[in-house]
Simulated assay, not measured.
Amino acid sequence: MESISERIASEVYEKSYAIVDDFISEELRVSLLKEQSELLEAGKFRMAAVGKGEKKQVRTEIRNDQVLWIDAEHLNKYEKQYWSKVDEVRQAINQRCYLGLKSFEAHFARYPIGSFYVRHLDQFQQVLYRKITVIIYLNDSWSQEDEGMLRMYLPQEDGSEEILDIQPKGGRLVVFLSGEIPHEVMPTKKERISITGWLRDID
């Protein structure tokens, strides 16, 4: 029987993305959300920037979320559980897609009410090593009225795009090719929490 990780790898191979509900246990979701809340209260989050190196800058007309990078060398027990599950996905994608994925980097991402991130690609000139985007949503509940969708623009063979809107439902995992699928976070009417990360072909 195909494992969840194998299913994700197959879908990424066939259509460049995969969506899996309840990827993590409810207990792990709640623990990660609680950790995020405590870190936020401790003032650890920073306004997200765009660009890399000398070109890195905060531009709130492009994105106005807040982030906190997770130190992969010093994971707590909940982060370790999540990293372990992502590593199973990494291995499955390598077996199916031959991408040579070696490592994972991620940050907590918090979108306060009214915040957004305009259309972009996760892989650009300075970060060509980002091959696969991996997002896990941590919200307690979400409804259509809360908005804040992840909107993906799926390239079609005729050159057009198909729009796919994904609710940031707690426990939902979204995986896609970083260099191929433009996407944006639509303005949210409720605080929106995730761990957003990238599988990379560098150590």
Rank of each mutant, 00 (worst) to 15 (best):
K44N: 13
Q126I: 03
E105Q: 15
I166E: 08
E162T: 11
W69P: 11
P182S: 11
V67C: 07
T60W: 01
L68G: 02
I132G: 00
L173M: 03
W198R: 12
T188A: 09
E35A: 14
P155N: 01
P182I: 04
S115A: 06
M1S: 12
R172D: 04
S143M: 08
L28S: 07
N64C: 14
L173G: 00
H74M: 11
W69D: 14
E38G: 05
L101Y: 01
G43A: 09
L164H: 10
L199T: 03
A92Q: 00
N94G: 01
F176A: 10
H120L: 13
P187T: 11
I202W: 01
R90Q: 06
Y17W: 15
Q156Y: 02
L33G: 04
R63Y: 02
H74N: 15
K34C: 06
E61N: 12
R63H: 06
H120Y: 11
E27L: 13
I193S: 14
V50G: 00
L150A: 02
L28W: 06
L154G: 08
Y153M: 11
K189A: 13
S178E: 07
V67W: 04
R63L: 08
G100R: 04
N64L: 06
V134Q: 06
R96F: 01
A72C: 08
R192W: 06
Q125D: 14
R119N: 04
S194I: 05
W198D: 02
I93H: 00
G43Y: 08
Y111I: 07
M186T: 12
G171E: 03
S37P: 00
I8F: 01
K56Y: 07
I193E: 10
A49R: 15
M1V: 08
E38T: 12
R172Q: 09
E157C: 04
A106G: 06
